[in-house]
Structures are given as C-alpha cells and as structure tokens.
Amino acid sequence: MDQPVAQRIGPGIFVFDQWSRGNSAIHRLDPRGKVIACFFLLILTSLWSSAWCIFPLAVLIAAAARVPIPGLARRAALVLPFTLIFAAVTALMGDYPRAAALLWRSYLSALWVSLLMATTPLEVVLETAARFGVPRLLVEVTHFTWRYLGVIGAQAWRLKTAALTRGGERSFHISAASLAVLFASSYARAERIHRAMLSRGATGENA
C-alpha cells in the first residue's frame, strides 16, 4: 500500500521506457538488427550446452549501452521465481545438471530480452515486429494495451483503496462488483479514446 500505483502492477515497469531513450551507439543501431541479434542469442542460449560462457557478452553490451548493470540484472531476475520452483523439483529428482541448465538458461535468455528492451523503445520493437510480418491489428492492440496499462491500473488502485476504506475486500460479491465497475469505465474510456482519435483526424482503417 505504500508503493506508488504503477509499482503495484509490476515493480519498476517503466524503467525500460527510461533506459531505452538513451543515446549510445547500441541505442542508435537499426532496430531490425537488434531484434535479429536478440533472437540469434536466444537460440544460441537454448541450443549450446555451454552458452553460459557468453554471460560476459551481456555485461559488455550493457556497459556499451550505458544501461545500469545492477538494475538490468534485477529486471532479468524476475524470471527466477518460476525457474527456481522447477529447478528445485528437478534437483530433488536428482537431475542436477538439468536444474542448473534451467537456471542459467532462463536467466541468460531474460537478460537478452531485457537488453533489447533497455536499448530499444517498445514502440520501435513493435513496429519492427510489424515490418517482419506480425499482424498490424495485434501490433496496434499491443500498443494500446501498454499505453493504457498505467491509466487503468491507477483506476483499479483507486477502486481498491475505496474498497479498503469501506472495510476491506471482504466479500467475493464486492470484488466482482468492483471489477464490473472497472470494466464499465474501461469500456466508456475506450469509446472516449475512439472519439478523441476521430476528432483529431485519425483515419487508420482499424481505428
């Protein structure tokens, strides 16, 4: 409750927005090249059984892009809770090499994706995906989802706070009603957004 609103959706969700506006040689590279490089490194990591030895490369890229390395390491660590459960179960079954591989593989892969997102703004990544043939509608919906995540998230947080002042999220029924209210206001907001887009002359066939 003492965290800022956006942090409730996920810790530090806008940190990539901040990092990706940097101005290093890596930031200025062609986004298509970066996306392809990211996939290449991901596939290399998943295929090569001693790919852990390219860990220093990630540090090198982060340093060249002047992205804070501890922060980046923390972002990539978000993958670990899921991995740790499976690694623990695998280790309990006696398959230690596989448990270790799960840990370093998933962490290194998360590091590659984080590096891409720390050096390329999300909208550029999505545009690049569209140029590679990802359906336009999907790209646009993803844009909108990201754009309104903070807005609807803040609203959900206000609803939650209001429920807490009334005595907490005590019943299933009240939570369902809150969610329905959130749905209704999101629906109305979408209509307002659409009208605002039209009034500003949006002509996109999809709009």
Partner: peptide, 23 residues
C-alpha cells in the same frame, strides 16, 4: 467502429484486474 482502442483498453483492464483480490 472503434474496436482497436476497445481491445487495447480491455488488455489493460485484464492486467489491472489482477490487482483486485477475490477473498
């Protein structure tokens, strides 16, 4: 008309809905 903003906002809604707990 206006489905793309609606779909996007609904995506944000599903994200945000995770904050509301059901006891």
């Amino acid at each position: 008309d206006g489905r793309v903003p609606l779909m996007g906002v609904m995506g944000a809604f599903v994200f945000a809905a995770q904050m509301i707990n059901f006891p």
